[in-house]
Design a protein around this nucleic acid. Structure first.
Lengths: 250, 250
DNA sequence: CAGGGTAACTTTTGATCAAGAGAAGCCGGT
DNA sequence: ACCGGCTTCTCTTGATCAAAAGTTACCCTG
């Protein structure tokens, strides 16, 4: 089993063998956890942060009127690292959307690691930039795109992000969001999601059945969404590095 | 003149005299810059990052259809640090919304500083968490709040963030956003912004004239917005530290 | 038989279009 | 430096329209 979190970091900065080994070390004891379990609750003191090694999770907020907005999707390789207020208190809830493999890394361990290997600190910063970019793209999505464009953009984003940590990823991806979840990601109602999903299906762009999403026409989907993956693109790698990445991912 | 960037970092982590001095060192050469000037353009290689010492700036994206969405407001003390793709290319544009005092810090300098003083690295991480939280709250704002609530929330956020770096801040704040800008922050049209602004005025909650915003009834505003500042709250400080902060801010 | 998905219909919110009033900067002239 | 007068942003308001939300009920499948 390869480690998608490590892969993320290697996309973000060049790591040597020692660094790689040290990161692996921290991911030793993953635990399996079911769908709809909390990884963090509002007000928790975060001595450690969860890292998703497989499965999907979501960070969200609930408003007074009961409305929910998902503010982030945690896909394999994603960490809940830049997600607490400066006083170390979790400000949002995180829930698994599917069965997941999770490892918890203490902030103390991470700090020690960064002190020893500055490159890891740089990789985390870079990872933070990526997260920040995704978040900003969500603001744009919800703020300025209509329902169909939002759906298309989300699908493109998910597909691209998954492809970064799983080379075997084809046009068929595991997509465990229910229509209710989608509504809470895109700031729409479930009924509306359904309609727009229909539209994408009718136009022959996707099929989505029992959490399997197949993309038939990525080009058109990107076209609709105005999707440009450069905001997620990994740093340019040397040939040797790319080779090593392939070995690790195998 | 105190340094709001330093203040931000001190809210985020406990810094000693040496760290403080070293940060001050990096902010030595601020430059004045007018309104509507670019601090970063799409595709720029970011060898350094701008820090806003006074004035307002905004990060935004433009869509194919010409629509603009502001994804972040840079207030005094804010840094454009977690805002490039992993390959170091700026992915969004940043423009000043008012005359600003800006200092550019090279990534190389920052890395050296962090290597020497891990506490600064921790402060930057913590600052990143705050940014991330603001971004997430914007997703919620645009995704699940109606026009009036969004306006109210933005005002509460701006007021609170400014109060963190300027102790003299009262209920009257400098608020240079035009109604067009507001529209692009909140994902609405300028016309609609105007109407909702009228409503807030008529209800006696605010006055806004020539870039001066006065908040008459913060409580009700927060009520409307469902605003809870804990996501922005600084880490708890010791009494001695708070004293020192006051001296620095004076 | 419950949860998730679909359909039809009504209502609301916010967008669009258009036109005019203020305000603020810019210019040349004294 | 001071002053009209011009241009260009901003802001304001009304009328009309479309997108998406609310509501309710039905269906399908595990």
């Amino acid at each position: 089993m390869f480690n998608p979190f490590l892969l993320r970091l290697m996309h973000a900065a060049e790591l040597g063998d020692q660094e790689i080994q040290a990161v692996e070390e921290l991911c030793r004891q993953p635990r399996d956890i079911g769908a709809k379990k909390y990884l963090s609750r509002d007000g928790d003191e975060m001595h450690s942060f969860p890292v998703v090694l497989s499965g999907w999770a979501a960070r969200y907020q609930i408003l007074r009127n009961g409305a929910r907005q998902i503010t982030r999707l945690l896909l394999p390789g994603d960490a809940f690292y830049f997600d607490c207020s400066p006083n170390g208190i979790a400000i949002e809830e995180v829930i698994t959307l599917s069965p997941c493999k999770i490892v918890n890394i203490t902030h103390a361990d991470m700090r020690r690691l960064i002190d020893r290997f500055p490159a890891v600190g740089e990789a985390m910063r870079s990872y933070g930039c990526m997260e920040n970019a995704v978040l900003a793209s969500w603001v744009v999505n919800v703020g300025r795109r209509d329902a169909l464009e939002r759906m298309a953009h989300l699908i493109c984003e998910a597909h691209y992000r998954l492809s970064l940590v799983d080379a075997h990823q084809g046009q068929q991806i595991y997509f465990p969001l229910t229509q209710d979840d989608l509504a809470d990601v895109l700031g729409l109602t479930p009924v509306h999601i359904n309609r727009k999903l229909q539209q994408l299906r009718q136009e022959g762009l996707i099929t989505l059945r029992s959490k399997q999403l197949t993309i038939h026409d990525l080009r058109t989907l990107q076209q609709i969404a105005g999707f440009d993956p450069s905001y997620l693109a990994p740093r340019v790698q040397t040939l040797r590095e790319r080779e090593r990445l392939r070995v690790i991912a195998a």
